[in-house]
Design a protein around this nucleic acid. Structure first.
Length: 883
RNA sequence: GGGGAAUUAGCUCAGUUGGGAGAGCGCUGGCUUUGCAAGCCAGAGGUCACCGGUUCGAGCCCGGUAUUCUCCA
């Protein structure tokens, strides 16, 4: 067993033996927390407990949590790869107490685990405690526990200020003092060992003594004024950085030299042929192995590269890795090759990596290819810029050009700089930075996510009882008026809050002297909030009796679509691959949308097959049943769990079909029909690409599917009427018609050409000689501009020493003119059709222009066209005189 | 969320102050060559993303929408 796997197990086992429940790492996409881009600390998944908004069936927990951090005060993306301990992905080991044990056990166990189980030298350990402030007394309690229960030396426990030893979740909210365990890496780790008079200190800045484990004692809540209040329960939240702990245990100089990374680095040495070094030469290696971990984990949890939000962070990380790869000669996609070795190392801790292997590799590879295209395009544009500079004998690439390359085309500035240096050019950095600052300024000043006001509703719980009820009598738990929006929380409710892709129920909540029209329902922690407009009467009081009624027809339509979504999921697995799984889902009353991982467009035959399979399952009229069970039990029995979803310990399993041979079993909290036959009909309406490796199917069911079918038939009837193909195959008839149309058009073109030639000959025969050229003109009655152009062409071809004007009214209020000039005259007499037609059109109260050999013009007074035609010879004559 | 770009033939793209929709590759047919690579000739293939506006006239100008790329947050 590798050391990393062993360390995780030792940690988990130690606390399990002490009554802790092993909780799975939450997905890196925060669930129900829009304020956070990624899970970035072990406590994220327990945040609702600390806020007293949610609860758990256990009071002691232990876990290892995957975390992603790309920006913020502790982590600058640019540091990753340069330093021995910065990462964009890392794991946190933690044990938790929710109102259970407190300081004594946490400290005692932490020490015991480090010293006696992990065999870390106690002589290298230090502890820190909080020194107190005007609201909090110094944490002598923790210090005494250290001294009495661990045997650590008195001079190894020190007091520190709030920056290091008072933990806060945010400006307001849960907080408390913490105690930290630090480790002395030894004199050679000191970065200031050559500085005179430097003394290495705990919480110093030389890197020799590092924090190993932080034990946080949450006992306060800070309000908006900064005042601390005691929490009803005290909690423990601990976090030990996994990579750093492993580094200490393995006794190596850098996180990147632990067994978590070395196999990846070796693989990269093979791929690139460049040997790793702990110095600068190894930066590309460190960047690549760090970033491939982040990308793989995020992709496995359902993040996809995109232009904003999480997806954009992924894209930037991938590009950073691709760019550093180029420094060690890796011009082609390479990062995806590290995914398999990564799964070797991390797959047992995070099975989702192995399950989504093909997806992860596919997406990374196609993103790398896409970046190559971006760079390639940038190179072309850069070439254009330098060519221009070369011609103008300039030596400075303007800030605007460099910025445009970067901002619009994504070409990295450092590459621009590098290539400029190679050509002895410089860049106007000042201007570039100014533009960059303007860009930042523009992006600021928009509102952030609306913070949820927690004060009113702390500790409230509402029960969802809507699986079998459309209406419920209950009491009001909380009322809030927000402009014209009313927010109600009830003790129990039949309303389904938007979750798992299923959108919220609509309906009505009624009380003695008023009613709420429910337009949206959201859940926050254990609370279900009904949002809508007060439609009658006055606000209800707390504890007022109400009747909550959902819109039954809407719910029924949602049920059809939700059960159909499960049937579709099964059908996709049957027809495409067992590994096909949901990447996103929308269940609305009028349609359903299902995103899944698949690399190619589905053929229309395939879509029909899938549609058939779903409809077979509908006709089979499978019974749909639900039951609650433990998460682990459910997973063991092979139930489909979706990524990007959070599941508690108790989960709900929706089963379609018999117990012995279920057609589908999925973890799902949504509402479903009793038997599949109720759905009636399932029709796919579209199939499209969402992003690399992900496709989307949209479908309708029940009444909506029937309406779709009827509309299609209606259209077909109309088509048959138009084609006159009743009784015969309209497709055959139409293709025959199109064929005929094609040959008629060809014939028409041929005839027109002959006709145009004839007219041209007529006009030429009537042309007048003057000044060694010929002038022809004619007023047509019913000829379009295109036809006049055809005739004009024939005239030019027949005689290169002719100018001609053609004119015709095209509608009641408009007339068109066309002028042509023979090639010889353009050269010899400098005649331009554009000028001539412009002058002629002016006689008719219009305007126009064109090219030397052919030009067109128009007028809104078609009755004046004859003036233009009659005056044309005069115009030509005068034009020649001027020359 | 806020900027900057792109969208033209199956693919890659060109298209000048607004005035006949083009090239290369690919495809089909013919010719040439001992064969291959290729060459020559001919042909098919277009809602210039979509909707609206300005104009006598819009691929081009203006406004909006969609999709994609890209930067910032």
């Amino acid at each position: 067993m590798s050391k990393s796997i062993k360390l995780r197990n030792q940690f988990i086992d130690y606390f399990r033996a002490r009554g802790h429940t092993h909780v799975h790492s939450a997905p890196v996409i925060p669930f129900e927390d829009p304020t956070l881009l990624f899970i970035n600390a072990g406590m994220n998944q327990f945040k609702d407990v600390f806020l007293e908004q949610g609860s758990r069936p256990y009071t002691r927990a232990v876990d290892y949590q995957k975390c992603i951090r790309v920006s913020g005060k502790h982590n600058d993306l640019e540091e990753v790869g340069r330093s021995p301990n910065h990462h964009t992905f890392f794991e946190m080991l933690g044990n938790w107490s929710f109102g259970d044990y407190y300081k004594k056990e946490s400290i005692e166990w932490a020490w015991d685990l480090l010293v006696n189980v992990l065999k870390i030298d106690p002589k290298r350990l230090y502890a820190t405690v909080y020194k107190g402030d005007n609201q909090v007394t110094p944490d002598d309690e923790a210090r005494n526990i250290w001294l009495e229960l661990t045997g650590i030396k008195d001079d190894r426990v020190s007091y520190h200020d709030a920056k290091d030893n008072f933990w806060e979740m945010g400006e307001v909210g849960p907080c408390g003092p913490c105690t930290e365990i630090h480790y002395d890496l030894g004199a050679k780790a000191c970065q200031k060992r050559h500085v005179d008079g430097h003394i290495c200190k705990v919480n110093g800045d030389c890197g020799r003594i590092v924090e190993l484990w932080n034990l946080v004692f949450i006992q306060y809540r800070r309000d908006a004024s900064g005042k601390l209040h005691n929490l009803p329960r005290k909690h423990v939240d601990t976090g030990a950085g996994f990579e750093r702990l492993l580094r200490v245990i393995e006794g190596v100089d850098s996180n990147y030299e632990t067994s978590l990374f070395t196999p990846l680095i070796s693989e990269l040495e093979v791929i690139s042929g460049v040997k790793y070094s702990s110095g600068d030469v190894g930066i590309p290696h460190r960047v690549a192995v760090d970033h491939v971990r982040t990308l793989s984990i995020a992709l496995a949890d359902g993040v996809l590269p995109s232009n904003d939000g999480r997806g954009y962070v992924m894209r930037r990380i991938l590009r950073r890795a691709a760019r550093y790869g180029r420094e060690i000669g890796l011009e082609n996609p390479y990062l995806y090759k590290l995914v398999e070795p990564l799964i070797e190392i991390m797959g047992s801790a995070y099975p989702e990596l192995a399950e989504r292997k093909d997806h992860i590799i596919g997406v990374i590879k196609s993103e790398e290819e896409s970046f190559s295209r971006t760079l390639g395009r940038g190179l072309v544009l850069f070439g254009g810029i330098t060519d221009k500079l070369h011609k103008e004998k300039g030596a400075v690439i303007s800030g605007d050009d460099a910025f445009k390359l970067y901002d619009t085309y994504g070409f990295p500035l450092d590459l621009t700089e590098l290539m400029a240096r190679e050509r002895n050019l410089t860049i106007d950095n000042e201007r570039f930075n100014k533009l960059m600052e303007e860009q930042r300024f523009r992006a600021r000043g928009e509102e952030k996510f609306a913070a949820i006001d927690d004060e009113m509703t702390v500790g409230l719980k509402s029960e969802f009882e809507g699986y079998n009820n459309d209406s419920i009598k209950t009491k009001v738990a909380s009322v809030k008026q927000n402009n014209d929006r009313l927010e109600l929380i009830l003790e129990k409710t039949p309303f389904y809050a938007e979750a798992g892709g299923q959108i919220a129920d609509h309906g009505r909540i009624q009380w003695e002297n008023g009613a709420l029209n429910v337009e949206n329902v959201v859940s926050v922690g254990d609370r279900i909030i009904h949002v809508g407009q007060l439609v009658e009467g006055v606000l209800p009081k707390i504890d007022a009796e109400v009747i909550a009624i959902i819109d039954q027809n809407r719910r029924l339509a949602i049920k059809y679509n939700h059960t159909s979504t499960h049937l579709l999921h099964t059908a996709l697995r049957k027809h495409l691959s067992k590994n096909t799984s949901q990447m996103g889902s929308l269940v609305a009353p009028d349609r359903l949308r299902f995103d899944f991982n698949h690399t190619e467009k589905l053929s229309s035959d395939m879509l029909f097959n899938i549609e058939d399979t779903v409809n077979e399952a509908i006709r089979h009229n499978y019974k749909v049943s639900t039951n609650e069970m433990e998460y682990k039990e459910a997973i063991k029995s092979g139930v489909i769990a979706l990524f990007g979803e959070k599941y508690g310990e108790e989960v709900r399993v929706v089963q379609i079909g018999s117990d012995d041979e279920p057609y589908s079993r999925e973890l799902c909290g949504g509402t479903h029909v009793d038997s599949t036959g109720q759905i009636g009909l399932f029709r796919i309406i579209s199939e499209s690409a969402v992003s690399a490796g992900v496709r989307r199917i949209e479908a309708v069911t029940g009444e909506y599917a029937l309406k779709l079918t009827q509309n299609e038939k209606r259209k077909l009837n109309q088509i048959e009427d138009l084609l006159g193909s009743h009784g015969s195959d309209p497709v055959e008839k139409l293709s025959k018609t199109l064929e005929e149309k094609h040959s008629v058009e060809k014939e028409n073109e041929r005839l027109l050409m002959g006709w145009a030639k004839g007219v041209a000959v007529e006009m030429l025969s009537e042309a007048n000689e003057m000044n060694n050229l010929r002038v022809a003109s004619r007023l047509f009655t019913d000829v379009s501009v295109d036809r006049m152009k055809m005739i004009g062409d024939q005239i030019r071809i027949a005689d290169s020493r002719v100018v001609a004007l053609l004119a015709a009214p095209v509608s009641k209020g408009a007339g068109q003119l066309c002028c042509v000039v023979g090639d010889s005259l353009i050269v010899e007499k400098k005649l331009k059709a554009g000028d001539l037609v412009s002058k002629a059109a002016r006689l008719a109260g219009g305007g126009g222009g064109g090219r030397p050999h052919m030009a067109t013009a128009g007028t809104k007074s078609p009755e004046k066209l004859s003036i233009a035609v009659d005056g044309f010879e005069e115009i030509v004559k005068k034009t020649l005189e001027v020359e």
